[in-house]
Design a protein around this nucleic acid. Structure first.
Lengths: 353, 353
DNA sequence: TTCACGACAGAAAACCTTTACATCACGGTG
DNA sequence: CACCGTGATGTAAAGGTTTTCTGTCGTGAA
């Protein structure tokens, strides 16, 4: 299957540009630097990692030689003795979901600033795979960020037992977390709809096990009760485009005036399905999403949704993780980031029939 | 700035679930297994990595003990002596571009199958950053995939000199590459437009330095010449939504009947701008994209575009890289993957005025 | 019976770095 | 003048694994 669409396999033996001494790249070690600078290896090591322990004159000489030789410490050797790897890992449910790549982008940038490299894995929304990936990663990172994990509480606690862990969009007592206040975002959504005059709204559930889904529902129900709005719950649906297609028909049948989708991708599916069925948005029914993906503003009509601080959450996750590591795994913090309703073209006053 | 939107920092000292013996996790080493199985460490090592060198009875005993103790080889120690890390790296220009995350997803999955972990870095389309990231990565991976690199040929050759390298969407003599046949895709686009009756088309350039851009233009020009179509070249523009907004006006002013965008994101920008100006698509002007992002089918009208084998390219890149590594860096292959025109709603016969 | 050889397992070196400890010189204090 | 503290550097151990070299044992052939 993989091969089926492959084209011609050409140039099997292209001339490499320079074959000579490719093998001769033996990597310069700390001994080479020591010899050249006429000091011991210990001094070189110190000059690089604890500069104030060595006399300035010596330090400068060592550093000069190191630079000249292009010395790069061998990370394997270093981490063998220090127990630190200089890496962090993140496992996300779906790399094709812009929500997670937004987080990943911020996380990657911050990690780089702190001189950490980042491993990434995609669990395909499968809890079993998630656990496996974490286990595989654990040995070669200083800590792991788990984005919207599907694992249950006990398994997460078990993981936190022997590796530094930060959760993203999942709150669990005793484990650091970067959280986005979805409940507040959903409250804003509902109050927006109430202001427009809606009295019967449908919520399209995301995955039942998802913390975010529970949070969003919680915020929604609280606000609905408070404002005396009838809330029809539908689903759960897969949090994907196809889920939205499927959900749209159910929502229409449930005779609601507004459809509140678990996330933008589902909302886009809903919009597509409604368009196919000739049901005008927002005239016949209002639709809202959640996440504010770039593409939410590009469809027509542009989607009313809730903006999430994705990059910020990614950066925060790194900060929390490094804090946790630096404090010998004793420091725990959970930080809530605020979300923001973005009103666009898919919401208006309900049809008067 | 980072802190500005943070909410309350709570629960500074939540009770960790189980504090006792968190420190006692000392990791079981090969010696422990050896002692328990009453063999030497050498035998344990062999039982795990070269099973046929040890008598079945012994091997089974060792394996049983290893499993019982939950032994996991220390990768740092292993790579210290073998020189292999078991990691590969990929650097992409933009993690928020679905094109690259599509590739990343496939790449990650394949790497996992082969028991490799993957480092990811985002260069933010900056060649300098790109070079830096590669250098930083080089020491801790067995090979690197460079997606649509912005670096110039010489720098790429320099990198290939001392690390295994696979390029994605960039062809360079003597370096392995996974390529998508954009030229053929663009030929299909133009022939589609010709068939509809278009005779004067505008091409919106992507970044001038981009190999993909040159390829697309090449395919387009060849087909245009062959079919006697007038091709107006505009740009370059940034390959983003904003670039499309900007390009749309220029294309309209150039009085073409069809706008061929460098990629989908730009095409979406074009569509948005045309909508704002009240220019109907495809009645007044046809528009095409390139990449077939999920969202290309969700806008209205849905975008005519060219599908790229993203996941396949990611998997292929891993295969090429591992092949290159396994062959002692002597094997070079360049593989072209086919692209596919997807006709949707943004193309039709030209306006007859 | 002896010898050669193969199959198996152990001992030890090697990979490169960090760091605890030792050494040394020097200046100050009692 | 003896002693001590301090700052700068060197020595060597340690970290966990792979791999080469060596040794042992048993088997089959001469």
């Amino acid at each position: 299957m993989t091969l089926s669409r492959r084209g011609t396999r050409s140039d099997r033996a292209l001339r490499p540009r320079e074959r000579a001494e490719k093998r001769a790249v033996v990597a310069v070690t700390i001994r080479d630097v020591a010899r050249q600078a006429e000091v011991s290896v210990a001094t070189v090591s110190r000059a690089l990692s604890a500069p104030d322990l060595v006399r300035p004159a010596t330090r400068d000489r060592v550093l000069a030689v190191a630079a000249e030789l292009g010395y790069q410490p061998n990370r394997a050797a270093r981490s063998l003795i220090t127990g630190r790897t200089g890496n962090i890992g993140i496992v996300v449910p779906d790399l094709e979901n812009p929500f997670f790549t937004g987080v990943l982008k911020g996380l990657q940038a911050r990690a780089r600033q702190a001189d950490y490299a980042v491993f990434v894995s995609d669990s395909d929304e499968d809890p079993t795979a998630e656990a496996m990936l974490v286990r595989a990663m654990a040995k070669q990172v200083d800590g792991i960020v788990l984005a919207a994990p599907a694992l249950d509480d006990d398994q997460l606690y078990a993981i936190a037992e022997d590796t530094s862990l930060v959760l993203l969009n999942r709150r669990l007592r005793g484990i650091s977390a970067a959280l986005m206040n979805s409940a507040a975002g959903m409250r804003q959504v509902l109050e927006h709809l109430v202001a427009l005059g809606h009295r019967r709204c449908g919520y399209l559930h995301g995955p039942r096990t998802s913390w975010s889904n529970r949070e969003r529902r919680r915020g929604l129900r609280a606000a609905a009760t408070q404002h005396g709005v009838e809330l029809v719950e539908l689903g759960p649906f897969p949090p994907r485009y196809e889920g939205g297609l499927q959900a749209a028909d159910l929502a229409v049948a449930a005779d609601v005036t507004a459809i509140i989708a678990y996330n933008d991708i589902m909302a886009l599916g809903v919009l597509a399905r409604l368009r196919d069925r000739g049901i005008p948005v927002p005239e016949a029914v209002s639709v809202t999403g959640f996440d504010d993906l770039v593409f939410a503003s590009l469809c027509s009509p542009p989607l009313t949704t809730v903006a999430m601080p994705l990059g910020q959450a990614g950066r925060l996750a790194v900060d929390l993780l490094l804090e946790h590591i630096a404090s010998d795994r004793t420091e725990i913090s959970q930080v809530d980031l605020e979300t923001q309703l973005i009103v666009r073209g898919t919401t208006s006053t309900p049809a008067t029939n």
